[in-house]
Nucleic acid binder design. Structure first.
Lengths: 146, 146
DNA sequence: GGTAGGTTGATGACGTGTCAACGAAACCTG
DNA sequence: CAGGTTTCGTTGACACGTCATCAACCTACC
């Protein structure tokens, strides 16, 4: 059994601590404006589609979510008026998710605030060399199935 | 509004991608031996206590979990025989969480395999300088409320 | 000894997401 | 054109965790 040596242990624990802390901080800031991170993710991704519209499958693919998860979440977002469902004329089985005007307003307000949060808790705390390190490290960890 | 510049955007996205990928990979490996990450966390932390025993409050504090969360999770782990609850002789309100023999066996089997997973998906893919960078970056991001 | 205030752990109700199964629709083949 | 297979999105059942509330207990003070 190859236990982690002290350097490895420290790095792993530091990584874990950081992930939890950054996630909690950015989530808290979003919650303050009435959105969860999944909410923001859906709004943001959907707003980038032509006509702010997507099939549920495409949207789920893009977000790397299951269709079941998105269907559930979309139902709740629909209840809150952030998006609406429409039949897909091209495919009777499918449905289209369309950002509502309200959803767009909410996103327009949320986007700069979320970016501020990302700056406050992540970007602005790091030096350019740190950002480069993060990309380098991400590159090495990419294809984690390898 | 200060949008992220290209370097910042890439680093943030790379960070987010990496966090999701590493978490998914290590969770998948644990799931293959019948444990969730919270399961492993509880077993591991409890095993470090004298007599493999802790009050729920202490255990929750140590893990940075709410007492409610731990109570719920402990109930499910108790059902699976991984731990048991006992009255706290020192405090009638409290209860003690005690690792069972079965739980200890499961952890003994899981620990090296989890460490292998952490190696495969994280540690062994990085250079010593990467590990140092991670610690440096974690240091900068620490106290994210600041 | 009695009381006020705080702590402990549990739990109902609910939000969130997974799993498996389903009905409807689309596609493909003979 | 019928039958089989695949795809799409939904949904029942359940796991997980949060929030708020509660009963039981502990501690400090009078």
């Amino acid at each position: 059994m190859r236990w982690l040596d002290p350097d490895e242990e420290r790095a792993w624990r530091a990584y874990r601590r950081t992930v939890i802390a950054v996630q909690a901080a950015t989530a808290r800031d979003l919650a303050a404006i009435g959105l969860s991170e999944p909410d923001y993710e859906v709004l943001s991704t959907l707003s980038e589609r032509p006509g702010h519209t997507s099939t549920l499958r495409e949207q789920a693919d893009k977000m790397r979510w299951s269709r079941s998860r998105l269907s559930r979440h979309a139902s709740r977002m629909e209840e809150r008026g952030l998006l609406r469902r429409a039949p897909d004329p091209a495919d009777g089985r499918g449905c289209l998710l369309v950002l509502t005007d309200s959803g767009l307003d909410v996103l327009r307000d949320a986007a700069p605030r979320h970016l501020e949060s990302v700056r406050r808790h992540f970007v602005d705390r790091l030096l350019p060399e740190d950002l480069r390190s993060i990309e380098r490290i991400a590159q090495r960890l990419a294809d984690v199935d390898g």
